[in-house]
Design a protein around this nucleic acid. Structure first.
Length: 643
RNA sequence: GCUGGCGUAGCUCAGUCGGUAGAGCAACUGCCUUGUAAGCAGUAGGCCGCGGGUUCGAAUCCCACCGCCAGCUCCA
């Protein structure tokens, strides 16, 4: 018991310590008082543990302080406990359930008949601040399942009892409790040393949430909050939230007159003239890019007899998300996806290996009958259009084709300044096709990602039953991540549609299909772009690229001439013909986030010039009108798919 | 779909205890003819989401519906 153990520190040094010493003691004695004071939690052999843990074997030890993201997560979990303790003190009879940390904060779910009001949240937040000031230590305790069940059953905590039963059923022999200030929760930990180390806690919202996320279970009251070690970090976080609100595509879409919605078409957008220009720019650039890559654009029906969906298998698995209707005793549906149509086109005649890869692209409108409560903005809709394509090819062509698609994805996202990461999802438990086929395909996908220099994570078992897939996330200017592009292999649907091609060997083979989209959906991608650019689009994308304003209305004829010259070079320009002072017109144009403002007065008219102001930068001074036009022509050239 | 919140002028929002609906901006008209983020004055604008109910009387209270917003297992 007294023989010392070896503790390896992150700098590589090794210290000895008495067996059974706590981490906190070890740090104070062997490392230093400064670190001992700053320590919040430790990592022993890769696992996060409390500072009160005893070191009983040789190990690698790392001490985490407020600088570490993991420590912040622990503090947020501490905060969740404190919130729960305060709620149970202020609202007797409320049961606790779970309270995990999430990105940017935490939540805690409570079972209580009455909902919490915003005033309740303020009271709870105040109680939490008091609890933090009281600086109660977190105390870890190990108990048997029987003790845990008795403890929570006595308190009437039926949800906790249920959780204990579940965990015991999964084989746990000892369970851990954490106490602070006389309150106890069943928790895996770890926790910080005491409530005083949490920092500052802010409760953000309250919402309903089903127990275990299942609509068949009772509805709980979920309190969301966040915690930071200091007020400045909290303020910065709240400022990020405010900035996201300012950039919200629903708000900007209204202000900039990009799109509208109407109660009579829930889940569908009306694209106003300026929004339609954005859409068309994306659509045209993608069209030209794909045409250059050998894609063939096709248009297919929007309405299909249900026989198609029975053939594809969607009728069995996807029917609840389809809009259907009867006509002349037949059942029809609006198409929710393009793949079956493309299958029919491929299968319309005998295909040769010489035609492969055959790349069929479509930008048609799709409808999916999403539950009403899930709709919102342009990101959760019932009607949308994808930049969809299906590539039919021989199995041995998969690697090269996927590499080409990945290169396209990079090229497009780079054009918008969106950084990208990828996730490779592999074979699930239930799958179609041969395991060896999956293994080869997964290896080909991973090799393509590596060859393109794309960082990716692997999600084992998360592939679709019909094939492995790559999903791309983009990171926008507010560091938020959005899932957009997808590349999915399909070994299943070509077989269902009895697709075949004649190979070099003069025998029939079943092609592999690749489902792929780069923007994802136009609606969603436009929403992301609106927020990414905050409505201030780069000149090539902006619906209006320049607005001409005059110092006095006697300069309007010259302004009209200038605008005509610009339109002659395919520039999107408008003239502010309203009355008013120059300052007011400049202000209007700045608020409209038009990239370039051209000011025209006496000097400009006399010299065939224009005074140029760049949105967000200010006055660039006067230049010759011809020079300004040349500059705009260059700057409005799309970074991909240029005509 | 479910839980909670919300719905008033084109936009952003007031509207007390149930007593005949208000501001700013935008629009329109006029004056000003203007030099890089708001010139002045005036006018007009409303089925208070929709439908019922309670009441002498409803934007306000009640019921149902429609829509919008937040959320609905990143698992003790």
């Amino acid at each position: 018991m007294d023989d010392p153990i070896q503790v390896k520190l992150p700098d590589g040094s090794v210290k000895t310590a008495p067996r059974g010493t706590t981490i906190a003691q070890f740090v104070a004695q062997s490392i230093g008082r400064g670190l001992a004071k700053a320590a919040l939690v430790a990592r022993v052999d890769g696992a996060l543990v409390d500072l009160s843990r005893r070191l009983t074997t040789d190990c690698a030890l790392e001490i985490l302080t407020a600088k570490s993201p993991e420590a912040l997560e622990v503090a947020r979990h501490d905060a969740a406990h404190v919130v729960a303790s305060v709620v149970q003190r202020l609202f007797p009879g409320t049961q606790v359930t779970i309270g995990p940390t999430i990105e940017d904060g935490f939540y805690y779910d409570f079972a209580r008949d009455e909902p919490f009001t915003p005033e309740d949240l303020a009271r709870i937040e105040q109680g939490v601040a008091e609890e933090i000031r009281a600086d109660e230590p977190f105390i870890r305790e190990e108990v048997s399942p029987e003790e845990a069940i008795r403890l929570f059953a006595e308190k009437g905590e039926t949800y906790k009892v249920e959780i204990v039963h579940d965990i015991v059923a999964r084989g746990a022999k000892t369970l851990t409790l954490y106490r602070h200030g006389g309150w106890v929760d069943f928790c895996l930990g770890p926790h910080g040393p005491s409530t005083g180390r949490i920092g500052v806690v802010k409760l953000t919202s309250v919402a309903g949430a089903y127990w275990r996320g299942d609509a068949k279970n009772p509805m709980l009251q979920r309190i969301y909050g966040t915690a930071f070690f200091d007020r400045a970090a909290l303020a910065a976080h709240l400022e990020r939230i405010e900035e996201a609100k300012r950039r919200d595509h629903r708000k900007l879409g209204k202000e900039l007159e990009l799109f509208m919605t109407h109660p009579w078409a829930p889940g569908a957008a009306f694209w106003l003239p300026k929004g339609t220009l954005l859409w068309q720019t994306l659509a045209d650039c993608m069209r030209r890019l794909l045409a250059a890559e050998g894609y063939l654009e096709v248009k297919t029906p929007l309405v299909f007899n249900k026989a198609l969906w029975e053939k594809s298998g969607h009728w069995e698995h996807y029917r609840q998300a389809m809009f259907t209707f009867e006509s002349e005793e037949q059942t029809f549906s609006l198409k929710p996806m393009n793949c079956p149509s493309h299958m029919l086109i491929f299968g319309r005649r005998r295909r040769s290996y010489r035609e492969l890869p055959m790349r069929l692209a479509t930008q048609d409108v799709l409808h999916r009958n999403e539950a009403s409560g899930t709709l919102g903005g342009l990101t959760r809709v019932r009607q949308f259009a994808q930049d969809d394509a299906h590539v039919f090819l021989a199995e041995e062509q998969v690697g090269e084709e996927v590499a080409r698609i990945i290169a396209l994805v990079r090229r497009v996202y780079d054009a918008f300044g969106l950084a990208q990461t990828a996730k490779l999802s592999t074979r699930p438990n239930e799958f179609a096709g041969e395991p060896a086929l999956w293994d080869r395909a997964e290896a080909a996908l991973a090799a393509a990602l590596t060859a393109q220099g794309i960082a990716f994570t692997t999600a084992p078992g998360e592939g679709a039953f019909y094939g492995p897939k790559i999903d791309f996330d983009v990171t926008d200017s507010l560091a938020r991540r959005w899932q957009c592009a997808t590349i999915q292999l399909d070994f299943f649907m070509p077989r269902r549609f009895e697709l075949a091609f004649v190979g070099e060997d003069n025998a029939e083979h079943t092609p592999v299909a690749i489902h792929r989209a780069i923007y994802g959906s136009f609606e969603r991608f436009l929403a992301i772009l609106i927020e990414h650019f905050g409505g201030a689009f780069p000149p090539w994308l902006a619906p209006v690229q320049a607005r001409l304003v005059t110092v006095a209305d006697r300069f309007l004829p010259y302004a009209r001439q200038a605008a005509a010259a610009m339109r002659g070079r395919s520039l999107r320009v408008e003239i502010d013909e309203a009355e008013g002072k120059l300052g007011a017109k400049i202000r209007e144009a700045e608020i409209a986030k038009v990239p370039y403002i051209g000011v025209i007065g006496e000097k400009e008219q006399a010299g065939g010039a224009i005074a140029v102001r760049r949105h967000g930068e200010g006055d660039l001074g006067a230049m010759a009108l011809a020079a300004f036009i040349e500059r705009l022509v260059v700057e409005t050239r799309p970074p991909f798919g240029a005509p």
